[in-house]
């Protein structure tokens, strides 16, 4: 059952990720990207990481993608108004993308053999365990990343101000 779910979610994730790139209408692209995020959240649930799944949906699908959609709707990009790229650019993009894929596959192939084989702790995704790990073992990185967020927030507010006195 879980295996079938895994295959279904993976298929959905890959397909919708492809559709993000392929579809001409930017709004469709955003909607497919949201679908990709949902499929990935489903993978988190399969790994018993419910907290991660919920936060993933709230932050990425619920907040960031809404802002994406917001901007794209405001700009009102359409297939008609969008400048279409030339033929040669398409060929070049395909070749470059294909070469990148070859490199990635080559890099990941050797990495698959060196993965550490450890017993999977299936309770690690539960919120209590996750909180303990975050606040005990990774206290400093956690705090530093929150300062990073604070800096980004202050920067955004500064940029958003009409004039700096």
């Amino acid at each position: 059952m879980t295996l079938y779910l895994f295959y279904f979610l993976s298929f959905l994730a890959v397909l919708s990720a492809l559709m993000v790139v392929v579809s001409k209408n930017p709004v469709h692209s955003v909607l497919y990207l949201i679908m990709t995020f949902f499929a990935i959240a489903g993978h988190y649930v399969l790994l018993n990481a419910q907290f991660l799944a919920a936060v993933h949906v709230i932050v990425y699908a619920g907040a960031i993608m809404v802002l994406f959609l917001y901007v794209i709707m405001m700009l009102n990009l359409n297939a008609d108004t969008e400048p279409q790229k030339g033929k040669w650019l398409r060929v070049a993009a395909t070749v470059a993308g294909g070469i990148l894929m070859v490199v990635l596959v080559g890099a990941l192939r050797s990495a698959a053999d060196t993965l550490p084989v450890t017993a999977h702790d299936n309770q690690i995704g539960m919120i209590k365990n996750l909180g303990k790990v975050l606040y005990k073992d990774f206290m400093l990185p956690f705090e530093i990343s929150s300062i990073l967020f604070l800096v980004a927030m202050v920067g955004a507010v500064m940029l958003g101000k009409k004039e700096i006195k």
């Binding site: 919920a54 949906v57 699908a61 959609l69």
Partner: peptide, 25 residues
């Protein structure tokens, strides 16, 4: 009874906005 019940509620609420956005656009 999921152990992240409240977050589930928030997740669904944050998805609810798409219905209005998609329809309006």
């Amino acid at each position: 009874d999921v152990n992240i019940g409240i977050l589930y509620v928030f997740g669904v609420v944050s998805i609810g906005v798409y219905g209005i956005m998609i329809g309006g656009w």
